[in-house]
């Protein structure tokens, strides 16, 4: 599904990614973890073509992403901070994104009712609370039926009931055979949903495998401590 070879990225003198190699197969939920500033978001933005890498190749579904922007039709992306143009109404934003991507979705109404967004449809995005914005963000992400879904901190600002709905949604998408890439700092959420984890540390992939493998590797009884032990060992 996704293949990354020898990816390097520097911002000024700050080397964020230094030689990332990653293969992500088809189907399943992959969690990208790492301490703050380890390059999770940069990695994802490289994948989306928003950040231009200094070196390395990325291909999505067998196509090098340098060749055109059409590969993004295969990706649904949930940005980390839901920053929307504040003078647009929720309804207008949804119609606009549908229009820009070629208007071939029907599930937006189901998603709107799933997240109980009907009362906000005519409100301007600037007047919404953080959690409501995140729900709009989720609707925009899940309304297209793309084989690769990238979620950057999907849980931020959500209330418990929306969180449950989100988890169900993610499971439903997984059952359709999609590949889902998640970054999160909430370990319990990661442990619950993900099949495999990718641990980034100082711009490199430190570990890739299942949660059980991580527990054995670090010799810790639970996931949270396993992650913590990696971090203390490496003084991150």
């Amino acid at each position: 599904m996704v293949s990354i070879q020898d990816l390097h990225k520097k911002f000024g003198k700050n080397e964020v990614l230094s030689g990332v190699n990653l293969e992500i197969g088809e189907g399943g939920i992959f969690a990208v973890l790492g301490p703050n500033g380890s390059g999770k978001t940069t990695l994802i933005k490289c994948l989306l073509g928003m950040v231009i890498p200094n070196k390395g190749t990325i291909s999505v579904l067998g196509k090098n992403i340098k060749h055109g922007s059409n590969y993004r039709y295969q990706i649904d992306y949930l940005p980390q901070i839901a920053n929307f143009p504040s003078n647009l109404k929720v309804k207008e934003l949804i119609t606009m994104i549908k229009d820009l991507r070629g208007n071939k979705t029907t599930v937006d109404e189901q998603l709107i009712s799933l997240f109980k967004l009907e009362p906000f449809l005519d409100k301007k995005l600037g007047n919404l609370s953080g959690g409501t914005k995140q729900k709009v963000n989720l609707v925009l992400t899940f309304m297209f039926d793309s084989p690769l879904i990238i979620l950057d901190e999907p849980t931020s600002g959500l209330d418990p009931i929306s969180l449950i709905r989100l988890k169900n949604l993610i499971q439903a998408e997984k059952e359709k055979g999609k590949t889902i890439l998640i970054t999160s700092h909430i370990m319990s959420f990661v442990e619950e949903v993900s099949d495999e984890i990718v641990f980034l540390l100082e711009g490199k992939i430190y570990f890739k495998g299942s949660i059980n493998e991580l527990k054995t590797k670090t010799d810790q009884p639970d996931f949270e401590h396993a992650i913590a032990s990696i971090l203390t060992e490496n003084h991150a």
Partner: peptide
């Protein structure tokens, strides 16, 4: 002012 809008568009299948 339209930075957010631009970032939203960049993740869509559109040419820069």
């Amino acid at each position: 002012n339209s930075k957010e809008f631009t970032e939203l568009l960049l993740a869509q299948p559109l040419k820069r």
